[in-house]
Design a protein around this nucleic acid. Sequence first.
DNA 1: TGAAACAATGATAATGGTTATCATTATCGC
DNA 2: GCGATAATGATAACCATTATCATTGTTTCA
Lengths: 140, 140
Amino acid sequence: MLSRYVLDKLENLSYKITPQRKAILQVLEENQGDHLSAEQIFLSVKKRMPNVGIATVYRTLDALANLGVLHKTSFDEGLFRYEFCEDDRHHHHHLVCVTCGNITEIEEDLLYQLERKVEDQGFKVIDHSLVIYGICQGCQ
Amino acid sequence: MLSRYVLDKLENLSYKITPQRKAILQVLEENQGDHLSAEQIFLSVKKRMPNVGIATVYRTLDALANLGVLHKTSFDEGLFRYEFCEDDRHHHHHLVCVTCGNITEIEEDLLYQLERKVEDQGFKVIDHSLVIYGICQGCQ
DNA sequence: TGAAACAATGATAATGGTTATCATTATCGC
DNA sequence: GCGATAATGATAACCATTATCATTGTTTCA
């Protein structure tokens, strides 16, 4: 069930609510907590609307990321991944297992102290991206 | 002047010391603290050896990254950047100005506490990548 | 309910960054 | 100096993403 919040946000910014956009949002909502590539999202959307174009998926993902509905990031793989978030600010970090490639999250922020030091040096902090690489429990 | 350490490392692992590799290493050593793209490195190397091929640059950068002589990372730009480091572990973080795109570093680590929490959850930490996005002093 | 405006779409060509292929060159050990 | 083989340069190929353009479809308004 699509978030009223997201649809409202789209309408308030004069975006048309097309079936393709709804389908893409549904896939992302159903996969909350995951970090799907554009290709994965495209294949998932195709299951429910076979005519959707890959370019539409890319355009929609970028639009949603610009609206703050998605977070668009990369994990040094040469491609972008997308995750659903309804906050404008991204509050968790990622754990990437170098053995199996699994991506999980940790909610603890704990960057306050570091960000204070950075601001003490005159740099105005807006956002951050932290990825911790290692070996997950399942691969040890 | 090329680091004896790096050359030793190459030799010890049976890599041939070719002029191309020396030139690439020189460019990286001369730009320590910078985060150059493959294209930038290629253009810089071309100034001192006009016949070098772009594929050679890519192959060499990957080889050096695998050896731990370089750090290969991306800043969500759709391309990789490379920085010279002689440690096997990367100890600083990056500050990226969203206005001018400048990339600087902060030496403070301060992730110990967070990494402890992560390891308490059964994830064995190997490395991390932290980018702080904001506005640099010059752009405020 | 229909029409108009124009946003959005799908198909596909194009782009940019990177890698694979292959013939040729060059390093290094002996 | 020679042989083995790693490395090179050129370029084709690949992949993820974006640009182009004709067509479609959403939304507003009368």
